[in-house]
Amino acid sequence: MADRKEWEPKIVAFCCNWCSYGGADTAGMGRFQQPASVRVVRVMCSGRIDPLHVFNAFLEGADAVLVTGCHLGDCHYVNGNYKTEVRYQFLEELMIEMGLEPERLHLSWISASEGEKFASFVNKVTTEVKKLGPSPLKPEGVN
């Protein structure tokens, strides 16, 4: 199969219902073409993105994880994303100290109108991760 020749990374994107999920929708509506690497997991608020689930994604085989939400100040739940931001800083430091390449974990604020931003974000991360190859935490035989 032609598609198989090139390795396609698997990227888990946690999106909040109100902004970044809408951003991914808007990317689709604008037909901004993206590599087929991302699997979106919807939560109500980026504040719900438990590092536990980020760990789970990596340990199960994710080559990168995207934590996304509303722009600061735009949170549907007042300030969930501020909490996300602080928690993410600890998470990011942990993953880097552990030896994960920084390119594999990202935090981004994407509004429901920023379809193009979502698409270029996916493009950028996918290109970077392709260069790196599979994640060192990916179990053998999994993709």
Binding site: V12, R39, V41, D50, H53, A62, G141, V142, N143
Partner: peptide, 12 residues
């Protein structure tokens, strides 16, 4: 959420 994320991946 764990079930959803785990099933992003398959054994190949």
């Amino acid at each position: 959420l764990l079930a959803q994320v785990r099933n992003v991946f398959t054994f190949e």
